[in-house]
Design a protein around this nucleic acid. Structure first.
Ligand SMILES: [Mn+2]
Ligand SMILES: [Mn+2]
Ligand SMILES: [Mn+2]
Ligand SMILES: [Mn+2]
Lengths: 233, 233
DNA sequence: TAATTAGTTTTGGCGAGCCTAATATTTTAG
DNA sequence: CTAAAATATTAGGCTCGCCAAAACTAATTA
């Protein structure tokens, strides 16, 4: 059990900051004040201020006037919270039958208060899942995380059949839109036609035919399904 | 849906205060500052101060220098939180297999963050229970609550067989002690001997023979099992 | 009734989190 | 290479939650 338990020194705000910064530093090496503020819905000064405190506590490295990155300690906590978040999301969907586009807010509140016992209970109840309902990897208890590389739906050639593996969880409305079309992890998609010049992609999802924009198709991760695999044995 | 949803204006602290006051005003009509402080583990000034703010918000009636009681609005909120608490406790015990003496703290944290959807999901999953794992009534969604009157184990005559209906949830260690002896709601108890002068009560719990003090036996609610009922049909 | 005690409130202080307005510094575009 | 635009930080302020010490009743007892 590598995660330190230390009687919840961390506030909800701190934990949310850590996760937000963790996610932002996947795109560029430093998380910028502005991006943090945006992703948490708070003002710039609130972030500037909080950064100072968190850096003092040793969770962040602050490159003054440029951005922050997580220290190993901050990263470990971020991963613990992220694990909690994603395991709770999985629980909400698999057990409580939440729709995939309504788990984030609930998980974002619960992630700060559940105990280790709670986590173990749902983890075992769920059969130790490795991905959440959006197809994102669930960090391990030891603080490691797998990075899956998926083909993007945008890159799939017409005629191919693929299975949805991951959808972006950034925008709730977008997630709702995708869910309504049946585009959720596990769904089978056949690409029918790809219009030129960044045009829409026409696909068949579980029987229905729909069209999605290139920009959205770039946020959908799929695995190419090899035909041989489908008919094996 | 009578409970107002009003985008969580209430802080965790406020909700805890309301429930604590609700419970205290079952014993005397006004909850005293000192008792509130004690049951929440905060200082007297913290309570005095908070009382002023809560009274301003219309949740409390403050009889200056004597105590507080809930306004109808405060009472409704207290009951909503209490419902949440007890339903969560039931979930933790029935679904996640928590021991009965370890649910309170978890529920006291979760009760402030779960959504109405979450409540509905677990309520239906649990089959709309009316009592929590300690045998306490779960308030309805409309804000009503049943009051059960139980015989106390302390009053049961030697030779009688009873079923445990309710145990006190005030003291965690006591709860643990009772659980270890098998004295939990649902357990069958046969009173063997009642020592005079407030002496211990010797009982048989699910096969084992143990003795409990009068003071503890006064905190255990039971229903007298009429023999005729046991053999009916 | 006066004095002691138990309980309550006031005073004065602290840190966390948030915000707006003002200021400083990069970055970017002309 | 400079001026405008974008970002970041400071300053100044607010509420909440919490505390210790001091001041102040109300209740009890001698
Ligand atoms: Mn969160
Ligand atoms: Mn997710
Ligand atoms: Mn609580
Ligand atoms: Mn209970």
């Amino acid at each position: 059990m590598l995660f330190k338990k230390q009687t919840n020194v961390l506030t909800e705000s701190t934990e949310n900051f850590l996760v937000a910064i963790y996610r932002l530093t996947h795109e560029r090496s430093y998380a910028r004040t502005k991006d943090i503020a945006e992703s948490l819905g708070v003002s710039l000064p609130t972030v500037s201020e909080k950064i100072v405190r968190m850096a003092e506590h040793g969770y962040l490295d602050h490159q003054w006037r440029h951005g922050v990155m997580l220290t190993p300690e901050g990263r470990l906590i971020a991963l613990r919270v992220l694990r909690t978040h994603r395991l709770i999301e999985t629980f909400l969907v698999n057990v409580l039958k939440y729709p995939i586009d309504e788990v984030n807010d609930e998980a974002c509140r619960l992630e700060h208060v559940v105990s280790e016992r709670f986590m173990h209970a749902i983890d075992s109840m769920l059969g130790y899942p490795t991905v959440d309902p959006h197809g994102h990897p669930i960090p391990t208890e030891e603080g490691t995380i797998e990075v899956f590389e998926y083909h993007l739906l945008a890159d799939v050639l017409a005629g191919k059949k693929v299975i949805v593996k991951q959808v972006s969880d950034r925008d709730r409305d977008q997630l709702h839109y995708l869910k309504d079309m049946g585009i959720v992890p596990g769904a089978e998609i056949t690409v029918l036609e790809v219009a030129p010049f960044d045009g829409p992609i026409s696909i068949n999802v579980e029987g229905k035919t729909v069209a999605v924009s290139q920009s959205i198709a770039r946020k959908i991760g799929v695995n190419v399904v090899r035909i041989r695999e489908l008919f094996k044995e």
